[in-house]
Design a protein around this nucleic acid. Structure first.
Lengths: 190, 190
DNA sequence: TGTGCTTGCTAACAAACGTTAGGTTGTTTA
DNA sequence: TAAACAACCTAACGTTTGTTAGCAAGCACA
């Protein structure tokens, strides 16, 4: 959908996402957002309750996308290494499908206030836990060889989540996901 | 050196680094910093020119540390795979030697203003370039096998720089550096 | 034709921001 | 002993912040 034909509320959210990514949440003012949309700051409040509501919306929408991705993978009956591959691919796809929102999700969540902050953090932990259990399973099956599972999962997720900072893509999205999946799988396999 | 016996200027910088890491540069006020030091906001200006000067100091001090690390490695006559290993170890060491400053270096540099901003970015590019050339050399020598060098370098650096976001260490610093070096080397080798 | 909803406006609010001015105190140096 | 300096203070500055109040225009539907 063309951005100009979107409902104003979505326009505001899109524009805010971009600004939050580029300037950071705290350094982006409601007047910045309004100017980018082409209205006055006060007019934003006809569509949105508060600045933080925009942030909350972005963070939890992305959290849901990541979580749904891995949960769907976990439910399949594919072999463990294939599951792992699918999980990585899905993770990369979620990021590349909305780079700006991913950047906000990853860099600005600390500006959430309670109780959303606690909920967000626990979602994040849960996600990491799912990845850990995937690798644990591979180790138990004897197809993965890993010295320290927690270390590997953190190193891997850091790598994936770093994509949003890359100044330019080194690979197109449809190759990036497989490239990551292959590189990690090579590192895990016995 | 105990923090209480440090010169006030350093105390301010240390406290500011911590706050910048946890709240972000834009969301940290001079009054926050002052309160953490135990003085009034205006008193900070007896020691420091501006808020941005603190940020500039942190960012370029870390940039220097990273750059010196890899330049020293490049000058040795070690074989390429050993050089690479040393470069990774040194990079991790710089991060773990000052996690808070690394976090600021990595997350808050966008709040630098010109001309420092441009200089900072070009330093970052130069650093990436050195890593790329290291891997290129390994590929030419036939000891590394890499599908896309830029991709691998970005994925690797993202992973390393993610350390500062980890809620807790998975490994103690003296093992973390080698763990990273080994995992990457395994991924690169033919 | 009138009612109510949507979307926008101007004006203003109290609070917080980085920073400066000017003064006081205690310590070091000539 | 006088002068200079370092380190802090209170008070205030102009600006920007997120947000509210109140109002106007345009449209939908009874």
């Amino acid at each position: 959908m063309d951005i100009a034909t979107k409902p104003r509320k979505e326009q505001i959210e899109d524009v805010a996402t971009d600004l939050f990514k580029n300037k950071g949440y705290a350094a982006t003012s409601m007047r910045d957002i309004a100017a980018a949309v082409g209205i006055e700051a006060a007019s934003i409040y006809s569509h949105i309750h508060s600045k933080e509501q925009i942030l909350t919306g972005i963070c939890f929408r992305m959290a849901r996308a990541f979580m749904q991705g891995i949960e769907k993978v976990m439910q399949t009956s594919a072999p463990t290494d294939e599951k792992f591959k699918l999980a990585v691919i899905r993770h990369v796809d979620v990021i590349t499908s909305d780079i700006a929102a991913s950047a906000v999700f990853w860099n600005e969540w600390r500006h959430l206030s309670e109780p959303m902050l606690t909920e967000f953090i626990s979602l994040q932990r849960k996600y990491e836990q799912l990845f850990r259990s995937l690798i644990e399973q591979g180790v138990e099956e004897g197809i993965f060889e890993v010295s320290n599972i927690s270390f590997v999962v953190m190193a891997m997720l850091s790598s994936l989540n770093g994509i949003q900072k890359w100044h330019s893509y080194t690979l197109p999205p449809e190759e990036l996901n497989h490239a990551f999946a292959n590189i990690f799988l090579k590192g895990l396999k016995k």
